[in-house]
Design a binder for these strands. Structure first.
Length: 479
RNA sequence: CGGGACAUGGCUCAGCUUGGUAGAGCGCUUCGCUUGGGACGAAGAGGUCGCAGGUUCAAAUCCUGCUGUCCCGACCA
């Protein structure tokens, strides 16, 4: 078993944790991974939370086909240009060449619009707000577990509205839902911002993003929400008759987050031992390990462990009792630490004599012996909240420390190439800067943040000019 | 798609330079002993050396081609 050491680079941290924590494994299919039960359970936690958020904001789930007629993709010029290079195409089926090739969906705007155009006729049909949980495929040059695989799981929301205003509201609402999910459940702080033209979704008027900072100093685009304007509506003739009896194209949005979020957790919360899971999305939050002795009566220890488990479960705490006898407790300790389980309870005969247990906290690797059994369930519940908060605060602190304001390319260089992180700056909008970032720094403008921190008299880092036309930007190297 | 590395038992790798009966550690199985931080001992199972050609009496080893994986770039959620 290989384990990352401190000098290991971020690439091996990602794969070591994903493999050792049994989140995923490499598959025989190029660029595709297998999500193992522990990893999939995290995805299910995320799904459960986000699905409720999506429904609470008035959306319904539906499902559209995996295969998209190739001609659909070509109907929207920017869209096809953006996605064609990374599409896998089905050309044969049933032993015959197909009349029309099918693209394995890289995203579903086109096929969904085909259906929308049938379903939408009147303003009374609007807004139409759908979501689907699905897999998509984008043939990537280079893949990384969770952060970029050719096939990945995601949800994609697609909505139609009668006005641009309403669509814009939807776009902002959903990006804020994502921010809520990331910060309050995954404990990953994010900046909401707008993408530059070169970074926005192929076919969108405008793309909003949540950008997170990983512990290695690289930014991660963790979710996006797009204002599609009427681009797809025009391509697919998705029209409606307004209250004023005028025919108009619908205004649309789409938005998504993917299994990349698991990558965000891995790269956002880890230490030398391995993964650290935020309690709210941990498949189980507490593992109980009874100390079992062969030539002694273990029934009391086991009984008490089971009792503890059901006590905790009554407070809606997810608990696993590991009473395997063939494996030493030391081995178990290590296993659950690598897997990032927030709390470990150790129950042994000596503890029980004193009505005590031992509590281990994964996030700070601390051990507390002699914790009284009395009121333990409430104590654990509080501790889980504390861990959740502490992880968010730690990540926030880290991000703030790694965010610096820069007013020149030289200053930018030291931020990007020394410790890494976000550089905040003013920008006059000259796209030449983006070229320089890409070529000289392998970095990019991650977003134009919604929450601005710089005053208007901060000079543009590219031209040095001070102008009210200048826009505030965040620059980083990114995954 | 460019650059680098690699492909030998379930895993990590040695062996290849200089061709000659396939190795180690970990894991696995059984038994024993143990259990408050990855136990120990003994016995055992498990590999047509990525694939296809070629050279040779003989190829894991030399040659050619292919495929795949990882890492670094460009592209991307």
């Amino acid at each position: 078993m290989t384990t990352s050491t401190k000098e290991a680079n971020s690439e091996s941290i990602l794969s070591d944790i994903a493999i050792n924590a049994e989140l995923a494994d490499y598959s025989p299919v190029k660029g595709c991974m297998v999500i193992r039960p522990h990893g999939y359970a995290i995805w299910e936690s995320i799904q459960k939370i986000l699905d409720k958020m999506i429904k609470d904001t008035g959306h319904e789930n539906a499902y559209f086909p995996l295969l998209v007629p190739e001609s659909f993709l070509q109907k929207e010029a920017e869209h096809v240009e953006g996605f064609a290079p990374e599409c896998a195409v089905v050309t044969q089926a049933g032993g015959k060449e197909l009349n029309e090739k099918y693209v394995i969906r890289p995203t579903s705007e086109t096929i969904i619009n085909h259906m929308f155009s049938k379903w939408v006729g009147s303003y009374r049909d609007l807004p139409l707000k759908l979501n689907q949980w699905a897999n998509v495929m984008r043939w990537e040059m280079r893949t990384r577990l969770f952060l970029r695989t050719s096939e990945f799981l995601w949800q994609e929301g697609h909505t139609c509205h009668s006005t641009h205003e309403e669509a814009k509201k939807e776009v902002m609402q959903m990006i804020n839902v994502y921010k809520d999910l990331l910060e309050n459940y995954l404990a990953v702080p994010v900046h909401i911002g707008e993408k530059t033209d070169s970074e926005k979704f192929a076919g969108a008027l405008d793309t909003f993003t949540i950008e997170a900072l990983m512990r290695d100093g690289k930014a991660l685009q963790a979710g996006t929400s797009h204002d599609l304007g009427q681009n797809f509506a025009k391509a697919f003739d998705t029209t409606f008759t307004s209250q004023e009896n005028k025919l108009d194209y619908v205004w649309q949005t789409s938005w998504g987050v993917s299994t990349r979020l698991i990558g965000a957790i891995i790269m956002g919360h880890n230490d030398e031992v391995g993964l650290i899971l935020p309690p709210k999305i941990a498949p189980f939050q507490v593992v109980i390990i009874p100390i079992l002795k062969k030539n002694m009566d273990n029934s009391l220890v086991l009984e008490k462990s089971k009792e503890l488990k059901s006590q905790l479960e009554q407070l809606d705490i997810r608990v696993k009792l590991d009473d395997r006898t063939q494996i030493s407790q030391g081995h178990k300790f290590n296993e659950y630490e690598q897997k990032g389980i927030p709390i470990r309870l150790v129950v042994g005969a000596r503890d029980l004599e004193n009505n005590q247990v031992e509590i281990h906290r994964r996030d700070i690797q601390s051990k507390e012996k002699g914790v009284p059994l009395e009121n333990l369930d409430n104590r654990i519940k509080d501790l889980l909240d504390e861990i959740q908060n502490s992880l968010l605060n730690r990540a926030l602190e880290f991000r703030n420390k790694r965010t610096k304001t820069v007013t020149s390319i030289e200053e930018l260089d030291s931020v990007l190439n020394c410790e890494g992180g976000f550089a905040r700056a003013m920008w006059n909008g000259d796209t030449e800067l983006e070229k320089i970032l890409k070529e000289k720094f392998s970095a990019s403008i991650r977003c134009l943040p919604l929450e601005k921190e710089l005053s208007e008299d901060t000079p543009c880092l590219f031209s040095g000019t001070i102008s009210s036309e200048n826009k505030e930007i965040m620059i980083a190297k990114a995954y």
